[in-house]
């Protein structure tokens, strides 16, 4: 599969995750969000999580499990954001799956 962005074809797997992490740009994230069945316009709150995920991946080479993401977001961005309720309000398809996809990361290990 592929996403077409700015006239360029970006390879994705059958679930829409990028084939090559290095292809990622913020525009790709926005385009993925708008391409959802119920289109999402990314806000600063979304970007905070997307950027956090990218930094986590850069440091540890994995997409964190939701439980780990929730705890780490709480520590880094404040306890009010470190709840699954908050993360699901931003990423209703599941913070692990949806946010990782926008961030250009693989699906979190252990995420079915």
């Amino acid at each position: 599969m592929a996403l077409e962005i700015g006239g360029k074809n970006i390879a994705t797997d059958e679930e829409g995750y990028l084939e090559n992490l290095t292809d990622w740009t913020p525009e790709i994230a926005s385009a993925m969000a708008l391409a959802e069945e119920q289109p999402v316009t990314l806000t600063d709150e979304h970007w905070e999580i997307i950027n956090f995920l990218r930094e986590y991946y850069e440091e540890y080479q994995i997409a964190p499990a939701v439980r780990v993401l929730t705890k780490a977001v709480g520590k880094r961005l404040g306890a009010d954001k470190g709840t699954s309720k908050y993360l699901y309000s931003l990423f209703p398809y599941g913070p692990g799956k949806q946010a990782c996809k926008y961030a250009g990361l693989p699906k979190p290990t252990g995420c079915v």
């Binding site: 440091e59 540890y60 080479q61 994995i62």
Partner: peptide
């Protein structure tokens, strides 16, 4: 190959 040695440092989070 991916440098998965960095991932051992995430084990504490798990």
């Amino acid at each position: 190959m991916k440098n998965f040695s960095s991932t051992y440092k995430a084990l504490g989070d798990y």
